Simulated scan of single mutants.
Amino acid sequence: METTINIIVPCFNEEETVELFYQAIQQTFEQLPNYHPVIIFINDGSTDHTLPKLRQLQHNKAVENHYLSFSRQFGKEAGMYAGLKVSQGELVTIMDADLQDPPSMLVEMIHLLETTNYDCIGTMRQDRSGEPVIRSFFSNLFYKIINKISDIEIIPGARDFRLMRRNMVDAILEMTEYNRFSKGIFSWVGFKTKYLPYQNVQRVAGKTSWNFWSLLKYSMEGITDFSTVPLTIAIWLGLLVMSISFAALIFIVVRSAIFGNPTKGWSSLLSFILFLGGMQLFFLGIIGNYIGKIFLEVKHRPLYIIQEKK
C-alpha cells in the first residue's frame, strides 16, 4: 500500500522554477516506489506567468499535482497554512519552488521518519554562502535574540522545509492566529524533531522576492509574535529614565538654591528633552505594534482568499 505525501509549495513569481521543481520531484520519487507524491502549489498572487505554468502542469500526470491561486498576495505564511489545510496525506512537507530545498533530501527524511519515532524531520543550513554579509549578520543576530527572550527554541538556520506526520500537521492547523510565524509555531507545538544539516543551495532560476527590509520586518514579526519581553524592557527602561530624571531634578533644585539659577545649559536641557521624547515615541511604537496585532486578530479576517483552484 502506497503512503501519500503532500508537498506544499508556496509560489510568488516563480514562472521559471515551477516546471524544474516538478521534474526534480518526479526524479526523486522514482527512488521511492512505495510513496505517492501529491504536489500542492500555492500561487500567492504572482504577477508573472506562474499561474499559466501551473495550469499547464495539470496535463502532466507523472506526478499528481494541484494548485490554489490567491486573489492577491497574502504572503508565504498564508500560503503554507492554506497548503496544510487542504493536505490529506499521512506525511506532509513544505518546500520552496526555487530548489533551495533539495528534493533529494526527501529520500533520507522519509527513511528517518518511517524507521524512528520522530514526528518531524526538519532541515537546517550549515552556512549562508552566497548571501550578503549584512543579511547573514542580522539573521544570526535574530536567532540569538529570539532564543534569549522567547520560551521556544528556534534552531539557527532552520528552514520551513520539513517532513511532518499527520498528527503534527493537525496540531499546527489548530493554531489559527492571523499573525503567523511558522518557524515559531513549529517549535511551539512541540513533537519530536530531528534536523538534518545541508550546505546552502542557490536558486536554480529567477530572483528571490525577499530583500533585506522584508526579512527584517519578518524577524520583528517573529519576535513580537512569540515574546512580550520588548514590553518588559520598555517598562524597566522607562523606570530607569524616570529615576535618573528625578535624581537630576533634585540636583538642579539644590544647585539653584545654593548657587542661584544660571541660564546656561539650555542646549543640554533641550537635548535631554528630545532624547526623552524620542524614547517615548520608540516605546509607543513597540506598544502600538502589539496593539496592532490585537486589532488584526479581533477582526477575524480570513488568512487568504482563493480565486481559483484545481
Results as ranks from 00 to 15, higher is better:
97 A>V: 01
69 S>Y: 01
86 V>I: 15
91 L>W: 14
95 M>W: 10
66 H>K: 13
65 N>R: 00
83 G>H: 11
67 Y>E: 08
86 V>G: 03
90 E>W: 01
71 S>R: 03
93 T>G: 11
98 D>Y: 06
85 K>Q: 14
77 E>P: 02
71 S>C: 12
71 S>A: 10
67 Y>S: 11
98 D>I: 02
86 V>D: 08
75 G>V: 08
73 Q>E: 01
84 L>W: 08
85 K>V: 00
98 D>H: 05
97 A>P: 04
72 R>K: 14
97 A>F: 06
79 G>E: 06
74 F>Y: 15
80 M>R: 12
80 M>Q: 12
93 T>R: 11
96 D>F: 01
72 R>H: 13
84 L>S: 05
71 S>I: 01
71 S>H: 10
66 H>Y: 14
66 H>E: 09
67 Y>R: 02
91 L>E: 09
99 L>D: 04
78 A>V: 04
94 I>A: 07
76 K>D: 08
70 F>Q: 08
68 L>H: 11
75 G>M: 02
93 T>F: 11
65 N>D: 00
87 S>E: 03
72 R>F: 02
92 V>K: 05
80 M>W: 00
95 M>S: 11
77 E>Q: 14
69 S>V: 01
79 G>I: 03
96 D>G: 11
95 M>D: 09
83 G>L: 07
84 L>P: 03
67 Y>P: 14
73 Q>M: 02
68 L>E: 04
75 G>E: 07
70 F>V: 03
88 Q>W: 10
66 H>I: 03
65 N>S: 15
98 D>Q: 10
94 I>F: 12
93 T>N: 09
67 Y>N: 08
95 M>G: 07
90 E>G: 06
68 L>S: 08
93 T>Y: 11
85 K>E: 15
65 N>Y: 00
88 Q>L: 00
99 L>A: 14
65 N>W: 01
65 N>K: 02
81 Y>R: 13
73 Q>D: 07
70 F>Y: 05
89 G>P: 12
82 A>E: 04
95 M>Q: 09
90 E>R: 13
71 S>T: 15
96 D>Y: 07
77 E>C: 03
98 D>T: 12
67 Y>V: 10
88 Q>S: 14
81 Y>N: 09
83 G>P: 09
65 N>L: 01
94 I>E: 05
97 A>S: 15
86 V>K: 12
66 H>A: 00
92 V>F: 13
87 S>F: 03
79 G>C: 06
73 Q>H: 11
82 A>C: 12
77 E>R: 12
95 M>R: 09
71 S>K: 04
99 L>M: 14
94 I>C: 12
98 D>C: 09
